[in-house]
Design a protein around this nucleic acid. Structure first.
Length: 642
RNA sequence: GCCGACGUAGCUCAAUCGGCAGAGCAAGCGCCUUGUAAGCGCUAGGUUAUGGGUUCAAGUCCCAUCGUCGGCUCCA
């Protein structure tokens, strides 16, 4: 992230939104897909045609019926299918209780089993208004449908829309369908609305409008599928980086320190430091030069860059020092720019690549904070490349190559690429159209040349330029922007950057902002969840634990540990008074890659009995042999333990 | 920030209708001397997030604040 860019979390398109083409992500017109292979994507595209989709859509209607029966004065909004289920938004007279949900769910099962037909009817706008008199949200939808250009989800469409309703039992809803023909197609034992708490949601996603109550539901074809889904949620909960961060002693938060301000414990700091070293070494080989800059700067710096005026709301308040105003830096680029400016550069010097693990601070609203993935102070693996127009494409591709190299090296495969361009209707961007177009074309051309599978999305650019982002999803299916590469003509102009060309004239360089991990905080969170805490050996905070069988074996264990330590392996000795089984259990729960049991037989043969965290027993191995094997795995950054 | 739920020992949780704050794990001490996912005993650990209020009596009810969680919104 650059910086400027953002490491920031992008909205989880899945959350509350449907992955099928019926719905688009709210902030742009380009439908987004996820990190799925094209072959699966073709299946995804047909989600809205599937029986599962109809089941969910129809179950949503039945839920609305049950809610209206319980709260006759309730107003209904919309209720689309989403990935793994559906929701329906209501304006309710009071907050829902668990008992309400249980009763509604019970009633839904009853309605389903009664076998009601879903009957479609086409109506005129006026007829629809009559049908939904008093239902203000529906009336608003009808207006949009009648006037055209806005579909029932409040989003723009070119299609001429027919107004239709579907009726089952006593409930009629404004809806385009499709639905099941009869509620008997729904398995009443394969639905649930109590699996997830109701939540608030703004009408039409607009924070200036009414806050509605959203009830989430899930529905499957069989009870077994439902159970499988619930099991999956439970598994995801176990992999949650916040939980594992606590269990593995990686990081903590403290109320007195402040929310959104992570404290890295020793184990977490080791992990993070290893990631930093890994990238630093690779970067040096690829021609990056380390730079270091302070955490604050005069506000004037950010006024010139454009950050302050454009993104005031997400920055911390300025503070006065000797009559001058300063602020915590929300990004590193302006600092790096002044390093560039401190010397006169020849075209022969370019490209110049400055890299820094730069800590930045951004104000995030309290409700937006989330573990390590959304915090208020974080460290970016930030770099800025200053290059000539001729070098731009190669430099850009070099960054993409580096990103994929790092991702592959860490076993990260589940990501998608996105090219973010300006929202043509927004004014929160700096620079002129020509520069923006040049930059966007450069990115698209480079991505095509690389053969990247990407989506172009409007409104996802940085404020000074378009970008290519790599996005992953966490266990809760929230999407997070990790890597970003941005082409920037604007900051070089604002800071009047130059280099002397071959023609002996002054020219303006182009900047590439880039971050691979994005923020170390977020990236570590993603890695924790990706590996479920069982990191590759080279990243494991503790790689080996020595387990003496009895107290008389502690001395030998300490000797072996010293040998391992001398070879650079991170090792502990479990000297607790527990049985061996307890020590194995503890080490396994801590996801320590290698457990070395040492007892009389091992001492006699100068060996260790090796057990892997997955439970594999490799038997007795001479100490030196084990060291060589372990070192090979660690030094190769192998993702496997054997 | 908004809607809702929640906050009890380091961690995970219990405490009936408002009636003596408890357990497991972890920790400390001791016993056992162990061969591949929990050996045994003892001890310590608390202003029940914080501040007010109601009540003879508050972990429990009410208000505010702080924090956490699920969503929404935002996300340079």
């Amino acid at each position: 992230m650059s910086a400027c860019p953002d490491y920031a979390r992008i909205p989880a398109v899945f959350n509350g939104r449907c992955p099928c083409p019926v719905r688009r992500a709210a902030s742009h017109n380009t439908f987004s897909f996820y990190a799925i292979p094209p072959i699966l994507r073709s299946i995804m595209e047909r989600y809205e045609d599937s029986q599962l989709y109809r089941i969910r859509h129809s179950t949503a209607h039945i839920m609305a019926q049950a809610v209206l029966e319980r709260f006759p004065e309730a107003k209904i909004a919309i209720g689309p299918p989403i990935e793994d289920g559906f929701y329906y938004d209501f304006d309710l007279p009071r907050a829902l209780t668990d008992d309400d949900l249980k009763a509604i769910e019970k009633r839904m099962r009853k309605i389903i089993s009664q076998g009601h037909e879903f009957v479609r009817k086409e109506v005129s706008a006026d007829e629809a208004r009559e049908l939904f008199a008093g239902q203000s949200y529906k009336l608003e939808l009808i207006d949009g449908l009648e006037q055209g250009g806005v579909d029932e989800y409040g989003e723009k469409t070119d299609q001429a829309l027919v107004i239709s309703t579907y009726t089952q039992d006593s409930f009629e809803d404004l809806c385009r369908g499709p639905h099941v023909a009869n509620s008997r197609e729904i398995n009443p034992k394969a639905i649930s609305i109590t699996f997830k708490a109701p939540a608030g949601a703004y009408w039409r996603g607009d924070e200036n409008r009414e806050m509605l109550t959203r009830i989430y539901g899930t529905a499957w074809e069989t009870p077994e599928q439902l159970q499988e889904y619930l099991n999956l949620l439970e598994e995801a909960r176990k992999r949650d980086h916040r939980r594992l961060g606590q269990e593995l002693g990686l990081f903590t938060f403290n109320q007195e320190v402040g929310k959104g301000l992570p404290l890295w414990k020793p184990n977490g700091a080791i992990l993070r430091d290893l990631l930093e070293r890994f990238l630093r070494d690779v970067q040096i080989k690829r021609g990056y030069e380390p730079v270091i800059t302070p955490h604050i700067a005069r506000i004037a710096l950010f006024e010139r860059s454009g950050h302050y005026p454009y993104y005031k709301d997400s920055q911390y308040s300025p503070f006065e020092v000797e009559g001058d105003m300063f602020m915590l830096k929300p990004m590193n680029c302006p600092h790096h720019i002044h390093i560039y400016r401190s010397d006169l550069h020849s075209y022969r010097d370019l490209p110049i690549r400055y890299a820094e693990f730069g800590t930045v601070y951004r104000y995030e609203k309290s409700g937006e904070l989330h573990g390590l993935t959304r915090v208020r102070g974080f460290t970016q693996d930030d770099a800025h490349i200053f290059c000539t127009p001729e070098q731009l494409e190669d430099e850009f591709l070099g960054v993409v190559d580096l990103i994929e190299f790092i991702f592959n090296g860490l076993g990260l495969t589940d990501y998608r690429a996105r090219i973010g361009i300006r929202d043509p209707e927004s004014d929160k961007y700096v620079g002129d159209d020509a520069n923006w177009n040049k930059a966007a074309q450069a990115i698209i051309a480079a991505a095509d040349k690389r053969g990247l599978d990407y989506r172009v999305e409007e409104g996802e650019a940085a404020f000074y330029g378009p970008k290519l982002d790599f996005i992953v999803r966490d266990v809760l299916k929230r999407e997070w922007q990790i890597s970003t590469v941005q082409v920037d003509y604007n900051l070089p102009a604002r800071f009047e950057l130059e280099y002397v060309g071959e023609d002996n004239e002054r020219h303006q360089p182009i900047m590439i902002h880039r971050a691979l991990y994005g923020s170390l905080e977020r990236f570590v969170a993603v890695l924790i969840e990706h590996y479920g805490g069982a990191f590759p050996a080279w990243l494991s905070p503790v790689q080996i634990v020595l387990i003496p069988v009895a107290d008389r074996h502690i001395e030998y264990a300490e000797q072996v540990a010293a040998q391992l330590d001398a070879r650079g392996l991170r090792v502990n000795v479990d000297v607790s008074s527990g049985r061996i089984g307890a020590k194995i259990r503890t080490a396994t729960q801590q996801k320590i890659p290698w457990m070395l049991v040492v007892g009389d037989q091992d001492i006699e043969s100068g060996a260790v009995s090796v057990r892997l965290r997955g439970g594999e027993d490799l038997g007795a191995i001479p100490v030196e042999n084990f060291i060589e094997q372990a070192l090979a795995i660690v030094n190769n950054k192998s993702l496997e333990l054997q």
